[in-house]
Simulated assay, not measured.
Amino acid sequence: MAMSAVARETVFALRRQIAKIEGTLPERLQAPAGAVSDAGMAAADRTVVRRGIAVARPDAFLRTGIGRLDAALGGDWGGDLGGGLPKAALSEIHGIETRDAGAVAGFALSLASLILKPSLILKQGPQLPVLWIGTQEVFREAGFPYARGLHAAFGIEPEQLLFSEAPRLADALWVAEEAARMTALAAVILEVRGNPQRLDLTATRRLHARAQSAGRPVFLLRQAAEPEPTAAPVRLIVSPAPAGPRDTVAGPLAGSIGRPAFTISIGKSRTALPGQFILEWNPDERIFDERRIGEERAKNPVPVVSLSRGRTDPAAAPGAVLAFPTVGSPAAGDQPSRQQRAAHLSPRRAG
């Protein structure tokens, strides 16, 4: 017997309500025109419903700028979206060991820099701050981000990063839930340690629902934690990657330390696509660059001005550029050599 129109609309309304709670939209696929057969109108009433992000706003995702990573995280939904981290959602950033806390914090600050970058460039509207919440145990173990280095590395002013130190995890969760519903914050960062029992599926569902309601991202930083069921649609495992040498006009500078690098592994995403990426953070342009695993870094894609006609190619560099060795103090009356000048006038060295 065919389903009545009233009952069918009731079912569709319930499905839309459930999809709204889960943060997805149902897509209704109509039966083909030739579906009506001996079964009468029953075949015509059949509707295939699949869940997924049907229509997303252009600003619904926080794109890292790495196409392969963004597509693996949020999927290529068409248009110029290109996927990425959902902005109005709870996202997990894991550190497998305690010593990875610096890399996890640096990656979270890089994401916060990407969020604040448009407002800093346009200088329009209020400069919303980022709230970082943690317990005394977390801050005692991992410490606080260095305020004077925030601007140099991430373009974040010290007054744009607020801290809330809670004595217990229950207090930190309460502060995070209240802050997640506020639109006066650009993002909320909650840092916890291990796998506490209080941070269960119900607690993460509340954080995810508050983030969806406010349209702001909530980043859950988990230090030395094992993966467990949560309401976060995305889980990234972050660890430090070896930094490459510093790039110069003459090529990589041997013995130097280049940009900070992160190894990113996808533990959970909407597309369920696994992947591992090595990202370098460019503090000057505040963007990510990808370093292919097992391959040399891609060359700078910026086109170079062609040589003038009638001239030969420039001569090669006279020799390899090396880091300056440590030398002793100059003798009295001697002019200090280039190697003996102040440290801030020389390239940074390893060791």
Rank of each mutant, 00 (worst) to 15 (best):
Q30L: 06
S269M: 04
G83T: 12
R16P: 00
L128G: 04
E165W: 00
A176E: 13
R140E: 11
T204D: 05
A241E: 10
S110D: 14
E141P: 00
V238I: 15
A316S: 07
A342N: 06
L122H: 12
S164R: 09
A33C: 06
I21F: 05
L279K: 07
S265Y: 00
V6S: 10
G155Q: 09
L185I: 10
P86G: 11
F262E: 04
G74F: 03
A2W: 05
A147T: 10
R291A: 06
S306A: 15
R286D: 09
W132D: 11
I133T: 06
G82F: 07
A232S: 13
P227M: 05
R16K: 11
K123S: 12
A203D: 05
P233Q: 03
P167Q: 05
I293Q: 05
A54D: 08
A105R: 11
M41K: 06
F277S: 05
R181A: 14
P240G: 07
A225H: 14
V218D: 10
R309E: 14
V138Y: 03
E191C: 14
G95R: 05
P86V: 13
E9M: 12
T183E: 15
G78T: 02
G79E: 12
Q17D: 13
A203V: 08
A316T: 11
A44H: 04
N282I: 00
P158N: 07
E191D: 09
G106R: 12
A211R: 00
R270Q: 08
L345T: 11
S113I: 07
P129R: 03
D289G: 00
L131I: 06
G134D: 04
G244Q: 12
R235F: 01
G258V: 08
R291M: 05
F61Y: 14
A214K: 04
L25Y: 03
A261L: 00
G83S: 09
A209I: 04
S337R: 11
G83R: 07
G143N: 07
V130G: 05
L307I: 04
V304W: 08
L345F: 01
P283R: 03
A44V: 11
S329K: 14
L322K: 03
D171P: 02
A43M: 13
V249W: 11
A243R: 15
L169Y: 02
L221H: 07
V249H: 12
L120M: 02
E92M: 13
F61R: 08
F139E: 08
R46S: 12
R206S: 06
L201A: 14
E296I: 01
P314R: 13
